[in-house]
C-alpha cells in the first residue's frame, strides 16, 4: 500500500519534472524577453532614465503629469485616434462587402480572391515605399492618373491637410484583403438553409445583405473591428517610412512619437510612461472585446 502510494507520488513528481523540462526553453525566453521587459517598462516610467547616460532616478508620477501638457504627445494620440476612426469603419465595410461579392459562385472567382490578398502578404515597408512614390507630387502615379480626369496635381504627403488621409488610404489598401478573407470564412459559416429561405421569400441582394448577412456576421465583425483598432493603435511603419511623422506632426502616430522620444532623444523615462498609457488603452479595448464576446455567446 505504502509502496504503491510512494510509487504514485514518485510518478507524479517525475511527470512534473518532465513537464518543466519540456517548457524550460519557452519559460526562459518568455521570462527574459517578455516578463522582464514588461516589469522594466512599468518601473522605468517612474524614473528620468536617459539612454545616453544610462542613469536615472525615481521621479514618482512626474512623467505622467507632464504627459497631460505635452502637446506633441497629445497630438500623436489624436493622430492615432483619427486614423483609427477613418480606417476601422471604411476598411471593415470594404472588406465585408467584398467578401459578399467574392462569395458568389462565379467562374474564376478564386483568382480574384488571390489577387486581392496580395497586398496583405507583401511587407508593410514595401507597400509604404511604393505608396510614398505614388504620392510623389511631381512624378507620382496618383497625380498621373488624377490628371486623366483633369484633377490635381495634389501634394498628398507634403500637405498638412492631405497627409493623414493619404496614409490612411495606404493602410486600407494594404489590409482590406486580409479582413475580406476573415469575413469570407464567417460567411461560409452561415447555414445554407438561410440563403435558400431568402431566395424563396424573394429578398433582393440589398435586403439580404442588411437583414441576413450583417446580423449573421456580428461575431466576425466584432473580431475584425477589434483587430483593426489594435492595428491602427500600433501603426509605426507608415509614419516612419512615408512621412517621418510630418508635415508638422500631422501623421505622427503615437508609437512613432514614443519611439523617437526613446531612441532619437534618449528620453526613456517619459517614453516608457507614454508606452504605459498606450498599454492601458490596449488592455481596455481587450476587456471591452471580451465582454462583448461573452454577451454574444
Amino acid at each position: 500500500m505504502i509502496n504503491s502510494n510512494y510509487r504514485k507520488l514518485n510518478q507524479s513528481v517525475k511527470e512534473s519534472i518532465n513537464g518543466y523540462i519540456f517548457i524550460l526553453p519557452a519559460l526562459l525566453i518568455i521570462g527574459v524577453f517578455f516578463i522582464n521587459p514588461a516589469i522594466k517598462l512599468f518601473s522605468l516610467a517612474y524614473t528620468d532614465y536617459n539612454l545616453m547616460s544610462g542613469k536615472g532616478s525615481f521621479v514618482g508620477f512626474d512623467n505622467f503629469k507632464r504627459l497631460l501638457t505635452n502637446e506633441d504627445f497629445l497630438n500623436s494620440l489624436s493622430v492615432t485616434l483619427r486614423l483609427a476612426i477613418f480606417i476601422v469603419p471604411v476598411q471593415t465595410l470594404i472588406a465585408m462587402i467584398m467578401a459578399v461579392i467574392i462569395n458568389q459562385k462565379l467562374k474564376g472567382i478564386n483568382i480574384f480572391r488571390t489577387i486581392y490578398f496580395i497586398p496583405a502578404i507583401v511587407s508593410f515597408v514595401a507597400v509604404a515605399i511604393t505608396w510614398k512614390q505614388i504620392y510623389n507630387p511631381t512624378f507620382g502615379l496618383a497625380n498621373t492618373i488624377l490628371g486623366i480626369f483633369n484633377l490635381g496635381p495634389y501634394q498628398f504627403l507634403s500637405s498638412k491637410s492631405q497627409a493623414l488621409v493619404s496614409v490612411a488610404i495606404t493602410c486600407i489598401w494594404k489590409s482590406w484583403g486580409y479582413f475580406m478573407v476573415i469575413f469570407l470564412s464567417g460567411l461560409q459559416d452561415i447555414p445554407g438553409e438561410i440563403n435558400e429561405a431568402c431566395k424563396i421569400d424573394g429578398a433582393n441582394p440589398v435586403q439580404k445583405f442588411f437583414y441576413i448577412t450583417v446580423p449573421m456576421l456580428k461575431k466576425t465583425t466584432l473580431f475584425v473591428v477589434v483587430i483593426t483598432t489594435m492595428d491602427a493603435i500600433k501603426l509605426f511603419i507608415p509614419a516612419f517610412t512615408m512621412t517621418g511623422g510630418g508635415p508638422l506632426g500631422s501623421t505622427d502616430t503615437t508609437v512613432h512619437y514614443i519611439w523617437r522620444q526613446a531612441f532619437r532623444l534618449q528620453q526613456v523615462g517619459p517614453a516608457t510612461a507614454m508606452s504605459t498609457v498606450l498599454f492601458v488603452i490596449i488592455v481596455v479595448i481587450t476587456m471591452i472585446q471580451l465582454k462583448l464576446e461573452g454577451k454574444n455567446d
Binding site: 518568455i30 524577453f33 521587459p37 517598462l41
Partner: peptide
C-alpha cells in the same frame, strides 16, 4: 505538471503586450 494552468495563462496573457509597447524595455534588456 504542477502549476501548469497558471503558467499557461501567464504565457498567453503576454499576447496583450505587443512589440510596439515593449520595444524600449526589450532594447534595454
Amino acid at each position: 505538471f504542477k502549476g501548469k494552468k497558471t503558467i499557461f495563462i501567464i504565457f498567453l496573457s503576454m499576447a496583450v503586450l505587443p512589440i510596439e509597447i515593449l520595444i524600449i524595455s526589450l532594447y534595454l534588456t
